[in-house]
């Protein structure tokens, strides 16, 4: 009994040391705009990713049309339609685009979702006021993974 418990605890420690926690946004390594390592170390949940596409700091369909989300109203037309995104891009590329699209597409209008400094007059969400302390990134490491997992379902071929 006691032995099993200790083994389980050891297992947690091992998992913990394999993944040291999400990197700071400035520490993320981009290669040609792509990020090969998972930001959270935990597989993304496409269902939660689907939710983020439609709301909060994600709100991707403000700018993109996605047929798989046609149950949701009002898709924007600022960026390209995302149908078939997983055919056009690898998982690492999609992670890089969602984390900081301006590395793949310089000057892009797409917000950088895993970034937390270098802004001009950043505000505290939509209050119009300056934040009290440091800002967090628009999406957490896990939320990025969830969105990437959803994008990976957008296959046409």
């Amino acid at each position: 009994m006691k032995r099993t418990w200790m083994l389980a605890a050891a297992g947690v420690v091992v998992a913990g040391s394999a993944f040291a926690g999400p990197p700071e946004p400035s520490e993320v390594v981009f290669e040609d705009g792509a990020v090969s390592n998972s930001l959270s170390g935990v597989p993304g949940d496409p269902e939660n990713g689907r939710q983020i596409m439609n709301k909060g700091a994600g709100n991707c369909i403000a700018c993109h049309e996605v047929t798989a989300l046609s149950d949701l109203p009002f898709h924007g037309e600022i960026g390209p339609m995302l149908d078939g995104a997983a055919d056009r891009w690898t998982e690492a590329e999609l992670r890089g685009i969602v984390a900081n699209a301006k590395i793949m597409f310089p000057e892009s209008m797409m917000p950088s979702f895993y970034k937390n400094d270098g802004y001009i007059r950043p505000g505290d969400a939509y209050s119009g006021k300056a934040p009290d302390g440091l800002l967090g990134p628009l999406l957490t490491a896990q939320e990025i993974e969830d969105v990437v997992a959803f994008l990976m379902t957008l296959k046409e071929e």
């Binding site: 600022i78 209008m109 917000p111 950088s112 802004y119 001009i120 007059r121 950043p122 505000g123 800002l135 628009l138």
Partner: peptide
Amino acid sequence: TRYGQLELSCANCHEDN
């Protein structure tokens, strides 16, 4: 100027789009 955490300028929305 691209203001805020979304880094968007007036021009991004009203000139480019």
